[in-house]
Nucleic acid binder design. Structure first.
Lengths: 242, 242
DNA sequence: CGCCGCCTTGACCACCATCAAGTGGAGTGG
DNA sequence: CCACTCCACTTGATGGTGGTCAAGGCGGCG
C-alpha cells in the first residue's frame, strides 16, 4: 500500500460517529451497509450462548476493522460491541467492493488484515484450551501490550486496561471470582501491578516467559503497509484529523 | 468465480503429491514457495506448547487451503500435519500473488475462504471456552458432519472420523482419558454411535440441539463461488482428475 | 447521602487432569 | 499358526483447578 492507495482509502470514509460504552456497533445476523473501523476506544467481538453467558472472541483496538466480513460474506455471524466509548469510521460496503475489484494493492492490504486477525484467533484458541488461568491472563496482557504499543497506546511497561474482571472472564472462559483471585496472586508474585485502569509490568520479559508469549503470530513486519503495522493503522492519523 | 476463473486456477496447480499420516506438510517458521491445498484426506493446523502438549487449531478437509497465509504474510505461525494419508496440490506462491493482483474475482474468492476459516475459528474459541466437554464434542461432530457433507463425504447421519481420541483431546483441550469417558456417555445417551472409524448419528437434530450448533458461521451460501461451497471445493473435480 | 457497579472474600463441590494398570485388535516375525 | 509388539481404547482411584453461591466492602456518581 503506497500513499496513493492510502489517500484513496482515506477519501472514501464517511464522517466518524461515537458509540457509548456497552453499546452494540453491529449485531449478529445484520447485513450492514457500511464497514466499521475503530478510530478510538476498545470494542470486542462476542457471541451470546443459550445459557446467557457471553463469549468475547476478539478485542478491536484503534486501527482495527470491525467487519470486513460483510463486504465479502453475507451476514454477521457475531455481534460487535463497544467496551469503552468508541469513535468509529464508516466505509460504505459498496466502496470496499469497488476497491477490492479495482485496487489490488488495497485488496491485498485488507486481506492481510484479516489474515492477522486469523493468526490472533489461533493463538487465543491455544491460550483458551491449553493453559492454566494465570498463564492465560499473562498471555492476554502480553498481547494487549504488544498490540497497543503498535498504535502508540502502550509503553514497554504500562498499558491501559479499561476492562472489568467480568469482561476478562468472558474473554478467557473464567468466572469473575476466579479472575479476581488469579489477578491478586499475580500481583503478589510481582508479575503485574494494577493501579486504577492501567496495568504496569515490572518485568515484561518475565511476564512473556510466564505466559509463553511469542509475538510471531502478530506478523508485525507488514510488507503491504509500508512503515505502518496495520492496514487501517496507516489511516488513523488521516481519519482522526477530520 | 466463474468458469474462466476456475479454469485459470486449475491450470496453475502443480502435480499433486502424497503425504503419509502423521507427517508434517509445512512447519512453523517456514516460508514455503508453494501454497498447499488438500485434495484427499484430513490434515490439521497445530502448535506445540513448551510443555510438549499439542494444540490442534483447525481441521483441513478436502478442498481447504492449508496456507494461503504465506502468499500474503511472511512466515508460517503454526505447523500443518496430515492426520490421515493425504493428497496435496501445490500452487506456486508467485502464482497466487499474480492471481490476486490481476484477477479480482479470484482474489475475492480466496479472501472469502480465509474469512470462513476465521468464522470457524471464532466458533471453536466459543466452543473451547464456554461449554462442558460433552457439548464440545457434540458441537465438533456437528461441524464435521456439515463440512464433510459439503464435499460429499458425509450423509445426514454418518461421517468418517479417522481421528484418535488423543487427537480429539488435543483439539478440544481435554485429556485422552476424559474424551474416552465422555464418548461412552454420549453413546449410552444415544447421541452418537461409533463403529470402527465412522460416527453415526441417530438424530442429527438432537445432537445439534445438545451441542448448541448453529451452522450460520460456515457461510455455506457463497455468492463468490457459484454453486460450490468452498473456493477450492469448486476445483476439486478438476484437480483430482489428473 | 444513597445507590449501583465492581471488586473482594469465604465455603463448598464438580469437572476434568493425572497416574497407573489392564484390555483388545492389527500387524509382524518366528 | 502362534507368540510378540504396538497402539488405541478402557477402567479405576485420587486430587486440583476453577465454578457456583452467597455476602460484604468500597468507590463513583446522581
Amino acid at each position: 500500500m503506497n500513499d496513493v492507495d492510502r489517500a484513496r482509502l482515506e477519501a472514501v470514509a464517511l464522517p466518524s460517529r461515537k458509540v457509548a460504552a456497552r453499546e452494540d456497533i453491529i449485531r449478529e445476523g445484520e447485513v450492514p451497509e457500511n464497514v466499521n473501523l475503530v478510530l478510538e476506544g476498545i470494542a470486542c467481538r462476542y457471541k451470546v450462548l443459550p445459557n446467557g453467558r457471553r463469549a468475547i472472541v476478539a478485542f478491536l483496538l484503534p486501527g482495527d476493522f470491525c467487519d470486513l466480513h460483510v463486504a465479502i460474506l453475507d451476514h454477521m455471524d457475531h455481534t460487535i460491541g463497544a467496551l469503552t466509548p468508541c469513535t468509529i469510521a464508516e466505509i460504505p460496503r459498496t466502496t470496499i467492493e469497488d476497491l477490492t475489484a479495482n485496487w489490488p494493492r488495497i485488496a491485498r492490504a485488507l486481506w492481510w488484515a484479516t489474515l492477522v486477525d486469523e493468526g490472533i484467533l489461533r493463538e487465543w484458541l491455544v491460550n483458551m484450551g491449553q493453559r492454566p488461568s494465570d498463564r492465560k491472563l499473562a498471555h492476554l496482557f502480553c498481547e494487549l501490550q504488544a498490540r497497543l504499543a503498535l498504535v502508540g497506546l502502550a509503553t514497554e511497561n504500562e498499558f491501559p486496561l479499561p476492562l472489568t474482571q467480568e469482561e476478562l472472564g468472558d474473554t478467557l472462559g473464567l468466572s469473575t471470582v476466579h479472575v479476581n483471585r488469579v489477578l491478586q496472586q499475580m500481583r503478589e508474585d510481582g508479575l503485574i501491578r494494577l493501579q486504577g485502569r492501567t496495568v504496569s509490568i515490572p518485568d515484561l520479559a518475565r511476564l512473556k516467559e510466564f505466559g509463553e508469549f511469542n509475538p510471531n503470530y502478530l506478523h508485525r513486519n507488514n510488507k503491504h503497509d509500508g512503515a505502518h503495522h496495520s492496514a487501517a493503522g496507516a489511516l488513523l492519523p488521516g481519519l482522526r484529523r477530520r
